[in-house]
């Protein structure tokens, strides 16, 4: 068994109203320490107002080898973009 602490993915909310964004990863023995380490490693310059940590092992990822079949088909379907509508100013940031 590896003696290294498990890896955690760190997500930080930059300010209220924004989504948590993936900022990086770190090692920690459990969630509580992962949060403390994330605070020290990733929010030293006031980057955030909230932190999530997720065990990296819990993330299921798509296979880079499948990218042609997964993503290629959407390349020529411009009509899926809502760019043919004029967005009223009042709607704000989307």
């Amino acid at each position: 068994m590896s003696k290294e602490w498990p890896l955690w993915e760190v997500f930080i909310r930059g300010q209220h109203g924004l989504n948590h964004r993936h900022v990086g990863s770190l090692h920690a023995p459990d969630a509580e320490m992962a949060l403390k380490n994330a605070r020290d490693v990733y929010t030293r310059r006031k980057e955030g107002v909230s932190i999530w940590v997720v065990p990296s092992a819990q993330i299921s990822a798509s296979d880079p080898g499948d990218k042609d079949s997964l993503f290629e088909p959407s390349v020529d379907k411009v009509y899926r973009h809502p760019s043919f509508f004029k967005i009223p100013d009042e709607v704000g940031k989307m």
Binding site: H27, A28, K36, N37, D40, V41, R44
Partner: peptide
């Protein structure tokens, strides 16, 4: 002992 602790 570890990078995270070093920064902390």
């Amino acid at each position: 002992p570890v990078l995270e602790e070093d920064i902390a």
